[in-house]
Design a protein around this nucleic acid. Structure first.
Length: 419
RNA sequence: GGGGGGGUGCCCGAGUGGCCAAAGGGAGCAGACUGUAAAUCUGUCGGCGCAGCCUACGGAGGUUCAAAUCCUCCCCCCCCCA
């Protein structure tokens, strides 16, 4: 038993345990002690906590980086609280200035609607959508009257707005800051009023907006929400943030083998981070994994396989994940061919004068980008035909020799040539 | 309105007349090793059946035996002052 500051009642152990799970992996929980107090208070009042997450449907697909905050929200669900998911179909049109060096381009209604649909589908891979309280902020932001808008703008000052990083940089760099961008944090804050949030989740880049929610709620006579921020997820390269444009991402709809393989390619140092942010595991499990890795009892190679299987299971089920693991081991550990080698017919343009020149064949099959690259690959010993390394870039074969043969380019590209 | 700095290969970035298909780094790819598609080391990294040729340094012309490098015009970015 522990006591919260300023509170005479002891905190029940199960709430403390729950609290530990919820704050695991978070960067900030503000104000400090606020969440624990909320949990205790909610228990006393016999009600669940309302955890808010607002998402602007500005991008079509979601990847693991987006799931970090969704997992956190799902954790609230798992502990019996209410996940309030706000689709920011109205705020998407305003454009969040967070982390932006310039004003966001405005999206059309159609784009927003389409994005929202795929977003909700994909969010369903993480959240229990049947239990989510799903709302759209156009419902209350659309009908706002001007006097209400003015009341909202009066809750803060220009000086406070300019304090935030993105704005102050742009302001001092003499770059434009549109008035509508000042509105964004206020509208997001108004969302919190509309849904009566106890706590709002977001990425660290959202800190300013989340705090503004507190200001707005207080101005509307509500208790200010707590805020909880989760870190940006590092991509597969371990250096840059996970992002589609860096090509270092895992999509939630990636195929099992692909998903498993991508996870296997993360640097070792990232394992615990991924475990913490992506699996939804509780704090005890994370601490246990960490401890066993540190002591050397848990072999990193095994740990990474377990992690990859665990994550693949979340999106594809245990059976597919186990199959992906088995296939991976067959391919890399035992250096055997995968069981499902794709079959391709011999491309017609690979045959010249009745002969097939190997570099051209590789290019024609799409295994390399050009004849020259095929030539290099061969010289480097990266090409096998029926398990025999071919090192002569001049290799020239008759089509009959190729039918039924398995061509391997590099470690993981296999093609069976068929007639 | 005035002054200044830039645009180089997938990305960053050096190069100011020949030795430049262009240093260096990153990414990618391959090989070795291993515990995996980690880490590390080595190689490779425009195209072409390749000891040669072609295409390339924002775009178009020009000077020259020779231009990423010099000249002219154009396009685009950025900074400072007003």
């Amino acid at each position: 038993m522990e006591r919260t500051p300023g509170q005479s009642e002891p905190v029940p152990d199960d709430i403390l345990e729950q609290y530990q799970d919820l704050v695991t992996g978070c960067v900030d929980v503000l104000p400090s002690g606020g969440l624990l107090q909320r949990l205790v208070q909610a228990r006393r009042e016999g009600r669940p906590i309302r955890a808010k997450l607002g998402v602007d449907p500005t991008a079509p697909d979601i990847h693991f980086g987006h799931t970090v905050v969704l997992r956190k929200l799902a954790q609230y669900q798992a502990h019996g609280h209410i996940a309030v998911l706000i689709i920011g179909d109205y705020t998407a049109k305003v454009g969040d200035p967070s982390g932006r060096a310039k004003t966001r381009p405005q999206l059309s209604d159609e784009e927003i609607a389409a994005n929202a649909t795929t977003y909700m589908e994909q969010a369903g891979t993480v959240l229990d959508m049947d239990k989510v309280e799903l709302v759209r902020n156009s419902d209350w932001l659309g009908p706002l009257r001007m006097d209400e808008v003015l009341r909202l703008t009066a809750v803060t000052t220009v000086a406070r707005m300019l304090e935030r990083d993105d704005f102050s940089k742009r302001y001092s760099a003499q770059e434009p800051i549109s008035m509508v961008e000042f509105m964004y944090p206020l509208l997001q804050g108004y969302d919190s009023v509309a849904v009566r949030a106890d706590i709002e989740l977001g990425g660290t880049d959202q800190t300013f907006n989340l705090l503004m929610g507190r200001t707005v709620m207080e101005a509307y006579g509500l208790p200010a929400q707590c805020i909880m921020t989760v870190p940006l997820l590092a991509g597969l390269d371990g250096v840059q943030k996970m992002s589609k444009s860096y090509g270092n991402y895992v999509g939630v709809d990636d195929q099992p083998a692909d998903m498993f393989g991508k996870i296997m390619s993360i640097p070792d140092e990232l394992m615990v981070t991924y475990w913490t942010l992506l699996t939804g595991a509780g704090h005890r499990e994370i601490e246990d994994v960490q401890a066993r890795l540190t002591s050397g009892e848990y072999h990193p190679a095994v740990a990474k396989r377990d992690l990859a299987e665990r994550l693949t299971t979340l999106y594809h089920g245990a059976e597919q994940a186990a199959a992906a693991r088995a296939a991976f081991d067959r391919l890399f550990k035992e250096k055997e061919r995968p069981s499902d080698v794709p079959e391709m017919p011999l491309p017609g343009d690979a045959v010249v004068d009745g002969r097939v020149w190997l570099p051209r064949l590789l290019a024609a099959l799409g295994l390399v980008a050009s004849n020259g690259e095929g030539r290099r690959l061969i010289q480097q010993g990266g090409v096998r035909l029926d398990d025999a390394v071919i090192k002569d870039p001049g290799a020239d074969l008759a089509p009959e020799e190729l039918y039924g043969a398995v061509l391997q380019a590099g470690k993981r590209q296999f093609v069976k040539i068929v007639r």
